[in-house]
C-alpha cells in the first residue's frame, strides 16, 4: 500500500502554468480521487491558456525551473471560445524558437488536460518530473545568470583588427 519512498539525488523544480477551467480542475480531481504524484510541481493558475505569455516560460527557466508544463482545455472545450487555439499557435512557434537557441524541448511539456482527466494530470506531471529528473538540472540559464560581466570576446578578425587599431 505504501511503498518505500525512493530517495533521489536530484529533485527537479517543475512549474506548471494551467488554465483554471480544465487543467486546474483536473488537478483538483486528482486530489479528490486521492491519486499520488511527485511533489515537485508548483501550479500557477490562469483564467485561460490564452493568457499565458511565452515570457513566463522564459522567466520560469531563468528563475531556476528544471521543467515547465503548460496545460489547458482540449481544443473546442475552451471556456473562452478560442483562448487555447491562440495559445496553441503561440506555443508552437515559441517552442521552435527555444529549440533553435538550444533549449532542450524535453524540459518543456504542453498538454490538454480536461476537468475530468485527473488521471491524465497525474500521468503528465509524473512523466515530466521523471524525464527531467533523468536529464538532471537545467543549468543553461542558471550559468548565464552567474556570469555577471559582459563577456564580449574579441573573436572575429574584424573585431581583432579594430581593437588593434585603438
Amino acid at each position: 500500500m505504501h511503498p518505500e519512498k525512493q530517495t533521489h539525488d536530484f529533485e527537479p523544480k517543475i512549474i506548471a502554468f494551467v488554465c483554471t477551467w480544465c487543467t486546474y480542475a483536473g488537478a483538483d480531481l486528482a486530489g479528490t480521487s486521492r491519486m499520488q504524484y511527485p511533489a515537485n510541481v508548483r501550479v500557477l493558475k490562469f483564467p485561460c491558456t490564452g493568457r499565458i505569455d511565452p515570457v513566463f516560460i522564459l522567466k520560469a527557466f531563468q528563475q531556476g525551473a528544471d521543467g515547465v508544463l503548460v496545460s489547458g482545455c482540449h481544443p473546442g472545450d475552451c471556456h473562452y471560445i478560442a483562448g487555447n487555439f491562440h495559445a496553441r499557435r503561440r506555443f508552437a512557434a515559441f517552442r521552435k524558437l527555444l529549440e533553435f537557441v538550444g533549449v532542450d524541448l524535453n524540459r518543456l511539456q504542453f498538454s490538454w488536460v480536461s476537468a475530468a482527466e485527473g488521471g491524465k494530470w497525474v500521468e503528465v506531471v509524473t512523466d515530466l518530473t521523471e524525464k527531467v529528473r533523468a536529464m538532471g538540472p537545467m543549468t543553461e540559464f542558471k550559468e548565464l545568470a552567474m556570469e555577471e560581466q559582459w563577456s564580449g570576446a574579441i573573436n572575429t578578425p574584424e573585431l581583432k583588427e579594430a581593437y588593434s587599431q585603438i
Binding site: 487555439f85 491562440h86 499557435r89 506555443f91 508552437a92 504542453f110 498538454s111 490538454w112
Partner: peptide, 16 residues
C-alpha cells in the same frame, strides 16, 4: 497575422 488567428485544425503534435 499567423499568431493572431487560428484554425481548429492547427498542428498539435507537440501537445500531450
Amino acid at each position: 497575422g499567423p499568431l493572431t488567428t487560428y484554425t481548429d485544425k492547427d498542428d498539435q503534435s507537440f501537445i500531450k
